[in-house]
């Protein structure tokens, strides 16, 4: 049997949360993980601590305390100006061996996956990736991770009975951020790890995060068809609000209301978004193939007989021109109230 560097008998009743941050703020996925970790351990003796790395972690570490963590372990080093999988793995490895948490969870982001994949091998432990839920048995210390496979067709529960830490990466967006009262006695512990430039595995030559149109990667797609009569202003606003992109069927593209790069379907872009909202689209097959892999499809069409209603999860028989503005308002109200 493969043996991890420490086992259940040596592990501490600790859930360690890897905290990702950008521009002095914690990433949403990390906030969700904090909430989940606190929820899993609430009312018990279990300890939850954050682990944060960077050249300057002060602000995000404070934010973690404000979000209810009692303890944040911080590793600051001048070479850690950005994520480098080699240096970060090395630093985390040292901390994990010192702290011996029973559970170590990360966000299934590009960085989180890179780090978790290497770290699990170095610790010779089990790793469950892209989990959609977590459960913790506080008695046995057993973590149960829910994952989906085969395009979501199968759901599996996974455990690592004999290995520690039990590592899981969690799909961004599955855990909600809860508002928790900050812990007054919360502490940030600095740990020094000796690192040098030679610990960096790669040179980052360029980095650009900005707007680039690639519908196939968009998580949210708002699609307009002939029934929009060329009115895409509202759809743009809705897409903007949801952080998505606007796509279209062939007719509005043909009529010049929207760029051809945004055409969806057999001769356009085939997408697999989490959400597709189709507005004024009847549902011709050559369009439908472009969104049939979407996790959720919402269809709005004035014609109750429209083929699209056979392909949707939620259908609305109405004029999209009336529904969309009301929806934008309702969404604005909702997000306003949840952030208050």
């Amino acid at each position: 049997m493969a043996v991890s560097l420490y086992g259940p008998e040596d592990a501490r009743q600790t859930v360690c949360v890897y905290l990702e941050h950008n521009a002095g703020r914690l990433e949403d996925v990390s906030l969700g993980l904090i909430s989940k970790a606190l929820e899993l351990t609430s009312g018990s003796d279990w300890r939850v601590c954050g682990l944060i790395l960077g050249d300057d972690t002060r602000k995000p570490a404070q934010e973690a305390l404000a979000r209810g963590l009692g303890e944040v372990i911080s590793i600051q080093h001048e070479i850690m100006t950005r994520f480098d999988v080699s240096a970060f793995t090395r630093a985390c490895f040292e901390v994990i061996l010192q702290e011996k948490p029973a559970v170590f969870i990360l966000g299934a982001t590009p960085d989180g996956r890179d780090l978790a994949g290497r770290l699990a091998v170095r610790l010779r432990t089990g790793l469950n990736a892209d989990c959609t839920d977590l459960r913790l048995n506080l008695e046995t210390g057993q973590l149960i991770s829910e994952v989906s496979g085969f395009g979501g067709g199968v759901i599996a529960l996974l455990e690592s009975p004999a290995h520690r830490p039990q590592m899981s990466t969690v799909r961004p967006g599955v855990f909600e951020q809860q508002f928790v009262r900050p812990v007054k006695s919360g502490v940030i512990r600095q740990i020094d790890v000796s690192l040098s430039r030679s610990d960096l595995q790669s040179e980052l030559l360029e980095r650009s995060v900005g707007e680039r149109l690639d519908l196939s990667k968009s998580q949210v797609l708002i699609c307009g068809g002939r029934g929009m009569h060329g009115e895409f202003v509202q759809l743009n606003a809705l897409a903007e609000q949801l952080g998505g992109e606007v796509g279209a069927t062939r007719p509005p593209v043909d009529e010049g209301y929207i760029e051809r790069e945004r055409q969806i379907g057999q001769t356009g872009v085939v997408c697999r978004p989490k959400l597709a909202v189709t507005c004024g689209i009847s549902g011709a097959f050559h369009f439908v193939v472009g969104i049939q892999e979407a996790d959720t499809v919402v269809a709005i069409n004035i014609d109750p007989q429209a083929e699209i209603f056979n392909y949707c999860d939620y259908g609305v028989v109405a004029d999209a021109h009336q529904v969309i503005p009301a929806l934008i308002e309702a969404l604005a109200r909702e997000s306003h109230s949840s952030h208050a």
């Binding site: 089990g126 067709g153 199968v154 599996a156 529960l157 690592s160 949707c312 999860d313």
Partner: peptide, 18 residues
């Protein structure tokens, strides 16, 4: 290290048409 302790068929891809 990991074992599968439970497995279930997720709902099929069939749309809910709600």
């Amino acid at each position: 290290p990991t074992i599968v302790s439970g497995l279930e068929q997720a709902e099929t891809r069939a749309r809910q048409q709600h």
